[in-house]
């Protein structure tokens, strides 16, 4: 099999695809003239440049070996899940619930963290958030809501 640096190949293809996406998307907007550039002008040419750069990156990946690094499913899932939970829960249940949930979910990404530690830490973090943002700053954030 030929040698391919999979990291740079994938990287190049990703940039290429992004460039094409923006360039094609920009076609929906008016290009305009050089004096009166329309909204599509700059994104179109930036997209073209990105696509070219992507092609160059992918081309340089050929001929040398390289393996893809591992995607950390558990770490990324817990962190991104925590942010998702915060965004969904805040308007429904308020800050206390959202902060507690975000903290607890994010900690499941740490294999060493036991239930006790997760609960205690999340409670402490929730308290800190409340003290700083609500009690001290009085920010207009819903604190405790009951939607049902």
């Amino acid at each position: 099999m030929r040698k391919v640096d999979r990291v740079d190949l994938l990287a190049g293809l990703l940039v290429l695809a992004t460039g094409v996406y923006f360039a094609v998307g920009a076609l929906e907007y008016r290009m305009g003239t050089i004096t009166r550039m329309g909204p599509g002008f700059v994104p179109f040419w930036l997209g073209v440049i990105a696509a070219l750069l992507g092609a160059v990156i992918a081309a340089t990946a050929l001929g040398r070996a390289g393996r893809l690094p591992e995607f950390a499913w558990r770490a990324s899932g817990s962190v991104l899940g925590a942010i998702l939970a915060f965004g969904v829960l805040l308007p429904l249940f308020g800050l206390l619930t959202a902060a507690f949930a975000a903290s607890a979910i994010s900690m499941t990404g740490n294999p060493a963290a036991g239930k006790r530690l997760i609960l205690l830490t999340s409670a402490a973090i929730t308290l800190i958030c409340w003290t700083v943002f609500i009690a001290t700053l009085g920010l207009p954030i819903p604190v405790w809501e009951m939607p049902f």
Partner: peptide
């Protein structure tokens, strides 16, 4: 392990 959940909450 204790710091990062707090960081995530603060970011949000």
């Amino acid at each position: 392990g204790v710091l990062y959940p707090a960081v995530i909450c603060f970011i949000c």
